[in-house]
Amino acid sequence: MPRPEDPQQGRADVPGDGTTTVEPGTGVPATPPQTPGEEAEPAATRKRRRRKRRPLGVMTWLALVWLVLVVAGAVLAGILPLHPPAGTDVLNNLRPPLESMSNPLGTDGLGRDLLSRVVYGSRVSLIVAFVAVAIGSTIGGTIGLLVGYFRGKADTLVMGFVDVMLAFPGLVLLLTVIAFVGRSLTTISLTIGLLSIPIYTRVSRANTMAVASREFVTASKAMGARTSRVLFREIAPNVILPLSAYALVTVGVIIVLEGALSFLGLSIDQPTPTWGGIINEGRRHLAAAPHVSAVPSMVMFLTVISLNLVGDKLRQRFDVKGTNL
């Protein structure tokens, strides 16, 4: 059921910032009325194609290695031989990177070790991103699955609400809510997660509708499967794949979003280091010691582009149309 008059179909950026406005499950949104059917496929086709798929490129491997490094750094920060992230050493401030073994990435305006701050800062980014994506994709994914399968009044109602929620630019809504509910790690993760439910609902619903009309679902129903079985054993597995590829890209979007918040001084309070926070602190040293901003910027950029690269690859893989081109 393509609805050409509905631009919302193609509107798939995470509420917000949307540096990555990519269509769910399609690197190739040939037409704005995104035809359901181009992003899901039964497990059998997938298996067949897996054998002849192209090897991952060098870029994708590099991206994966980088992501593993960042996650490992965040998890192991406590036991790595790092300076304390808040340990000041004013005499040793604004040291450029690669100058001494002790501060391989240099120090900031208060002489704090940038490597340590960037590694500890990744914890905030990653926790916020993963918690928010987990909340958004689970709740949004389930709602989308249900309304996409049952349709009817509930569907109209839910999608109406989704449309309205998406009428608020994400960052604006986020700023407003965060400013007044407080800026702990929990409230920020929860708020981003809750605010991103509508977008996942839309992606999940579109995929569900595409899968629900496929033969294997009809067959399952004809064989007398219960509705819950059809939903969770037949449809859900085919919706989860494109949804998680989409979720991976949104992890990057949320990292940027949290970065923007902390850059504006509206994320977790000092002294916890955050990437956006360090970049912002570096602003006043921009002329004399640009590395203070450059180091966390580079780390954040590499993380986001890695997520986009891997997400792109995943989406191509789950996207029937893309592989045929």
Binding site: P7, G10, R11, D13, G16, D17, G18, T19, T21, E23, P29, A30, T31, P32, F168, P169, G170, L171, V172, L175, A260, F263, L264
Partner: peptide
């Protein structure tokens, strides 16, 4: 699709203008 995204980008740009 460019036109669709142009509409969406208005929101993104409004958010970006904050920063």
């Amino acid at each position: 699709s460019l036109a669709t995204v142009l509409g969406v980008q208005v929101g993104v740009a409004l958010g970006g203008s904050v920063i």
